[in-house]
Amino acid sequence: MIRIPGIVWVMLLFSAPLWSDEVTSFADREDLDPVLVQSGYEWLTPESKALQDDEFENPGWLWVERGRQLFASDSGEPSCASCHQTSDLIFSSSATRFPRWSDSQQTLINLEGQINQCRELRMARESFALESSEMLSLTAFVSQLARGQPVNVALTEEVKPFWQAGRDYFFRRKGQMNLACSQCHDERAGQRLRGDLISQGHPNGFPLYRYEWQSLGSLHRRLQDCDAGIRAEPQPLGSEIYLSVELYLAWRAGGLTLESPAIRR
């Protein structure tokens, strides 16, 4: 009989995926059971839930109000309101359908990308920087119009490769800690990560107000934080891989309703 030193046993114990087939072990977890899909709201304390529900005290509404102003008037120049009516149901629910395929740009775009496309092509103005106060205010305002409506992205043939890339990113181990998104947000949702509850990682509240940021922020900023947290290389805001992840996450959260501006820790 071959004797195996104790230390090797310990190593094997903590490195299970090295000798199980990584892909097949995750395949059956690919899709969360729709009955079990839970918004990050469900993991909040009662106080934070109350703050999110209070349309005055929720600080995210500061950005929504600013977005309402930006949307309506742009000092005499054409504004968003020149083309879009907030009473139009197709427009007011548009935030539920991003990210989506853009025929004119021949790529996947999210709400931020759509706003900048409008500004450049229709309004002949400079685009807004991602995470700028103006961009966050406008995305918060447009997302807020669709509050309570279910996430509803279209998985067309054009966006399939992006969806696949996003899914691969979600299940790929990366960074110094060698962790995949799925290991926390699929397999350990509801368990504790130090003092914090791990959520299922759904994007239905973005842009949202995070206590840690003391500010509103987009999904891509959150993804950068996640990647930094597992000591992986954060990808640029608005990069193709984050857009792909955004699409995969939106698809994964299908059925959850939009909550922006949400409150999260």
Binding site: F56, E57, P59, L62, W63, R66, Q214, S215
Partner: peptide, 9 residues
Amino acid sequence: IKAMIQHPM
């Protein structure tokens, strides 16, 4: 009366 101001503090 409630008053809120947007400020990074």
